[in-house]
């Protein structure tokens, strides 16, 4: 397996060597090459420039490039580590690595904290949680009165905000998540364990001699 190498590499800007990426992440070289097949598909869906634009990210998630969603935009912004408005291949792989079933739980907890810390203050504030609840309601048919939302916030903060300062710090978040592990369900993508099966064509594009 893996003898389909020795062709000149033609990669878009932002491409990173799979061997280097494998040493930095939970993925094997083969898995990274398979992820490149997925990356090529997503990054060429609207603008074929080897970078994932927000519209392409939305299209991959919702089958609709115009659908606005606070959470998808937050995920995009966290993947866009260089904060230049696009996701390159290295950013894609490094960020997805956190979602691998074998990635450390601590990394998943930390990523979720950043996701919910909308204003990047180092705390998840009550106003931010309210904003996220309202965003969630607007994407579903669920209707909750402001009183009910405030009650949910009271209960959540009574449990999570142990020092009662109306915001959740990193340590409080870690303790809260450990008591409520279902909150981390979205932070693991079982697909990532089978990525080479999902994109077997990576073998034909492999530039690495031993991809086994």
């Amino acid at each position: 397996m893996g003898c389909f190498h020795s062709k000149p590499s033609q990669h878009a800007a932002g491409y990173e060597d799979p061997v280097a990426l494998a040493s930095d992440t939970t993925f094997s070289v083969s898995e990274i090459e398979a992820l490149y097949e997925l990356f090529k598909k997503i990054s060429s869906s609207v603008i074929d420039d080897g970078l994932i634009h927000k519209e392409e990210f939305r299209l991959a998630l919702f089958k609709n490039s115009k659908k606005e969603n606070l959470f998808a935009d937050r995920v995009f912004d966290l993947f866009d580590v260089k904060r230049n408005g696009v996701i390159d291949f290295g950013e894609f792989v490094r960020s997805l690595s956190v979602f691998h079933p074998n990635a450390p739980l601590e990394d998943k907890i930390d990523f979720a904290f950043q996701l919910y810390d909308l204003r990047r203050t180092g705390f998840i504030e009550r106003e931010e949680v309210k904003q996220m609840l309202i965003a969630l309601l607007s994407e579903s048919d669920m209707k909750l009165s402001d009183d009910v939302i405030e009650t949910i916030l009271d209960k959540t903060f009574a449990e999570a905000d142990t020092n009662n300062d109306s915001r959740i710090d990193k340590e409080e978040w870690q303790n809260f998540v450990l008591r409520n592990p279902s909150l981390m369900k979205n932070m693991t993508l079982p697909y990532l364990k089978d990525i080479t099966t999902a994109f077997p064509s990576f073998v034909f594009n492999s530039e690495v001699e031993d991809v086994a």
């Binding site: 959540t156 279902s182 993508l189």
Partner: peptide
């Protein structure tokens, strides 16, 4: 354990935008 509907983060985590498994679907 059953999800607690009074936990704001349980509710938020049901958002479609947080389900990245859709990236892997055809």
């Amino acid at each position: 354990a059953k999800p607690n509907p009074m936990n704001a983060f349980e509710l938020i985590s049901t958002s479609q935008g947080l389900d990245l498994s859709a990236l892997f679907e055809e």
